[in-house]
């Protein structure tokens, strides 16, 4: 079966006034279903640019991007929105919760943009997800009343609510201390074990150690692409059993 993500010779240039910034200079990558990929590399190497393209938040200058069966590199804005709403979940470095909303309401947001009604059932699903990430007792709290780690858990629950094919995380532990980072990575590893495909950008090798595969970038190229035979979470989960 084809990979969840297939990109072919992806190029992204930023046209500035004087110069053209070549953020991606022909990147090809296939990510299979159930994979957990860590994207590493020095600052400015194009990790976020690639992740934004994978997240259908931007369009490539050239090259192709197949998400599942669909070629999304040529899609219109509205179609991209629909792809994001159907197939993708985002986890950001700075959590990006909506301050006016409670935990449950934040988790519900992606459902507002699907062609489905909100119901008791969707409400229940949001509560279940809150419980899954360990916030069953904070359902009506607002982001301001939560710690960074808790906010990131809400963000993960939100990324799961539309049952996405692919979860994209840009430095999800970048704002957290190492203990909380471990908790978050546990959660992501658990999700991956349950079958979710995850692509995560990180600077830290001990965070990348949780992934099954590590891709390193430099100057808009993929420098190396190696499997991680002993991902952290796997062992942790195995030992726990």
């Amino acid at each position: 079966m084809p990979g969840v993500v297939r990109i072919l010779d992806l190029v992204k240039n930023y046209e500035l006034e004087a110069v053209t910034v070549r953020a991606l200079r022909g990147v090809s990558l296939t990510v299979d279903e159930g994979d957990f990929l860590a994207l590493m590399g020095p600052s400015g190497s194009g990790k976020s640019t690639l992740l934004n393209l994978l997240g259908c938040l931007d369009r490539p200058t050239s090259g192709n991007y197949y998400l599942g069966e669909e070629d999304v590199s040529e899609m219109e804005d509205d179609q991209l929105s629909e792809i994001r709403s159907k197939y993708l979940g985002f986890v950001f470095q700075s959590y990006n919760l909506l301050a006016q909303y409670t935990v449950v309401e934040n988790i519900e947001v992606p459902l507002l943009y699907q062609d489905r009604r909100l119901s008791e059932e969707t409400q229940r699903r949001c509560v279940e997800l809150a419980e899954l990430v360990g916030l069953g007792d904070r359902l009506d709290h607002r982001p301001m009343q939560l710690s960074g780690g808790q906010q990131q858990r809400v963000a993960i629950a939100r990324a799961l609510v539309n049952d996405p094919h692919l979860i994209l995380a840009d430095e999800p532990t970048g704002n957290l201390d190492s203990r909380t980072s471990d908790e978050i990575m546990h959660l992501l590893a658990k999700l991956n074990q349950a079958g979710k495909t995850i692509i995560m950008v990180t600077h830290e090798t001990d965070i990348a150690a949780w992934a099954r595969r590590v891709v390193r970038m430099r100057d808009g190229h993929i420098e190396s692409d190696e499997p991680n035979p002993h991902p952290n979470g796997h062992i942790a989960l195995v030992t726990r059993h």
């Binding site: 997240g55 938040l57 709403s85 990006n96 947001v109 939100r158």
Partner: peptide, 9 residues
Amino acid sequence: IRRALGAKR
């Protein structure tokens, strides 16, 4: 945020 989560224009 809303756009990333699937909101259309």
